[in-house]
Write a protein that binds this DNA or RNA. Sequence first.
RNA 1: GGGCGGUUAGCUCAGCGGUAGAGCACUGGUUUUACACACCAUUGGUCGGGAGUUCGAUCCUCUCACCGCCCACCA
Length: 955
Amino acid sequence: MIEKNYQPADIEGRMSLVWEDSRAFRAGRPDRRDAKPFTIVIPPPNVTGSLHMGHALNNTLQDILCRFERMRGRDVLWQPGTDHAGIATQMVVERQLMERQQPRRRDMGREKFLERVWQWKEESGGTIVNQLKRLGASCDWSRERFTMDEGLSRAVVKVFVQLHREGLIYKDKRLVNWDPKLLTAISDLEVQQVEVKGSLWYLRYPIEGKSFSPDDPTSFIVVATTRPETMLGDTGVAVNPEDERYRHLVGGHVILPLVGRRIPIVADEYSDPEKGSGAVKITPAHDFNDFEVGKRHNLAQISVLDQEGSMALVGNEDYLRDLPEGSEEFARELHKVDRFAARKQIVARLDNFGFLERIEPNTHMAPHGDRSGVVIEPYLTDQWYVDAKTLAEPAIAAVRSGRTKFVPDNWSKTYFEWMENIQPWCISRQLWWGHQIPAWYGPDGKVFVAETEEEAIGHALGYYVEQEVITPEQGREMALDRNKRADFITRDEDVLDTWFSSALWPFSTLGWPDDTPEVKRYYPTDALVTGFDIIFFWVARMMMMGLHFMKDAPFSTVYIHRLVRDEKGAKMSKSKGNVIDPLGVIDEYGADALRFALARGAAQGHDIKLSPQMVETNRNFATKLWNACRFAEMNDCVQPEGFDPTSAKDTLNRWIVHETVRATREVTEAIEACRFNDAANAIYRFVWNVYCDWYLELAKPMLMGEEGAAKTETRATVAWARDEILKLLHPFMPFITEELWEVTARRDTLLALSQWSRKADAITAEQLALMSAANPNEPMVPLALLEVAPADFTDEAAEAEIGWVVDLVTAIRSVRAEMNIAPATLTTLVLSGASAETRKRLPRWNDVIKRMARLSDISFADRAPEGAVQILVRGEVAALPLKGVIDLAAERTRLDKEIVKADADIKRVDAKLGNEKFVANAPEEIVEEEKEKREAALARKAKILEALERLKNAS
RNA sequence: GGGCGGUUAGCUCAGCGGUAGAGCACUGGUUUUACACACCAUUGGUCGGGAGUUCGAUCCUCUCACCGCCCACCA
């Protein structure tokens, strides 16, 4: 028995248990060994994270695809797992240490700290997985992976070593985006350009050989800068070669203020005469452009900042020695002063000596770390890089050729744009949490990269023995004793960018580099579902790595969804306080309602606006379905074994079969095209407006009538359509459909939608759980398959006939409402001048129409009785004799309005048909259509005129 | 600076060459035997502005306006 009330929390709790213990979501189920695989890898959430609305959307869409394909008979692998999320996780743990006033990371030491992070991972690592389960995600949880698992780590090392051997990973000293707060390099993608209100400082650089005076413009050259503090590291001034103002100075030198260094004036295209003063200071060690300019002109690179973004001049003895008198003291005072404080001091000093011309307010974009939020410092260091340009080539080709498709397609343009201008990928991070780089250094800095420490040490020691740096004897000792080589050979301290391991996810999770059956069977995957924000971070890199190591693109479809916003369209954020917690919503309305709300909103290329009210609406839909199933159950609607809906005799039943088949086709096509909103809306409409509003209502007289063939057939068809609905809806609303399926589908063979078969009434979830635990080898039975029994079944005649009934009932209801006839008042209906077809149809629908339109009697007549309300239904007049009940004047007004409408139609069509060009140029069928419209409108007008005439007679 | 998208009923969005659609909200009515988390019936739009192509434009082209996002090293 279906419970009276739909209570999502009960069902979902119970169903989660059932799913947990079933093995229905496993890849490679015994019944699917010969089936075509369908694979999706989950975008691994941060292992210590918790579910937000973006996850809810992302995983709902994936689950829809997975359940859908599973029901179509595919062997589905939805590969779950989590990401170690290097920086993010390390930051969380560091913050914890701070809050608890425990020793800081560096005080603890690497080993202890990593222990702490692992401990935190163990504590909170299950959270998001459990939350995904509450959403109903049908992942193969037995295959859950973590990016720092032993296996995945092996894949990382293998990839690093191979790419290094191929020259596609290399170490380079160049400017990187340095985060002075987190003290690590980050990649270009982790830098956010943020608009800042700053200033533009115009500085006077004295020209060599001239006597500097602020009043003599020929004695100096003005440069403009947003970063005056870096001037201490200037090693040149650039002007545009075409710039007449400065041409005579090219080749000369300026004396750097405060520092006294003689630096050249060079001509370089980089300098834009339109910007600032037209002359630009060049600081190769602190600016990406300047770095390039500096290389072109052989300018020195002088770092004046340290890792923390503070001035660092002490220790650079050459630098200090060259300073003019008085400046050395200043430089020493600046030592360890933060860059922004130093800026003030330097500007003040420049001003003192007349080197500051003016200050302009200036708004510009400044790079900020996306995690730390501080201004990023271009910083000269040794880092590891991936030659992304080379790897990008096949990745670009794969999308160009259509091997991998973006949905919607316009994202491929974004992808090309980025891939074609890709820069070397900086992969080393000065962090501890992550995959440590498998590189070892000898005393001379020579690097040895190998998959294992033994191998690297072997190579290194061999090399140094050969170079006679050490004796063979020493080599042997060091090989055997870690302590003895501790100072001789050291491992690279750095770890890899988190996205490095994520890039391998589609194959590392399958067991690569081992030659596993899973790699063979499930790679390449089918679809990737993700947000546009990680196309570059993740999708592009998976494409590169997948193509390089697996020789095939990792997926054929990349579905890109958009953001979930609040009801006003604002981004959800903690600071705004408009965050909707998916778990809270699930508690209140159920996961099914949330999933359906998200799916219905997931229009391609659009953000999803979500409010609790929308979820409520969809909970109401679930309730509607629940009640419809209760109705079916109360009426003993059961699908007999072997029931063939296409052989139904009754028109109404044939009609719902026709409609069900059509809805199924619509939904199927929409899901196949990733039009999740269209799919969900099609079901919504079908269930509510077709099945409930009309089919069940029209079927009521039959179901409540006498036993017989027709009633038996109707019961079976009601049940059949209900079961099709449950199947169709299951990918979207798995919990409620599963529940209803189990309770209502009383058949000899019980095929649960996504779980082991069980006798619906006889076995509880708890018992099932026990059974599967006790007998894990019990073979799995096939799932309910989503196939339209008669995929191409149509019945136009039934459609026309039910259409007539619907129109007639609607028209009568409309008139009754308009005439303010109380629902309790039964009226009669006279079909005047009815066609033979109508006369034939009526007996079949007499009861239904009477019931639905609140009539006491329906009769035929040659002409409508006097004083009746006359309505046009599909070209025939239906009259409601309401003499004495109706307001004749009001009725006349109503008919007059109809005439106006008809006239407008006629006029519009006449205008078209009267246009010779239209008749001459428009396609024939369009012209025909217009002519038919004209005929119809004329006929309608005639009937209304007749009706008016009779109304006159009545009064 | 480059690129992408949006502007259609109060709200959220479909439609993308042949007389404007849905859901929700609104309004009025309903203790009709599955469902008031429901039912029934309505109201509501010169499809952002302008120009063009066309027999015909919400739909194609151009242009303007406003909104949003992404990318970019510009002092």
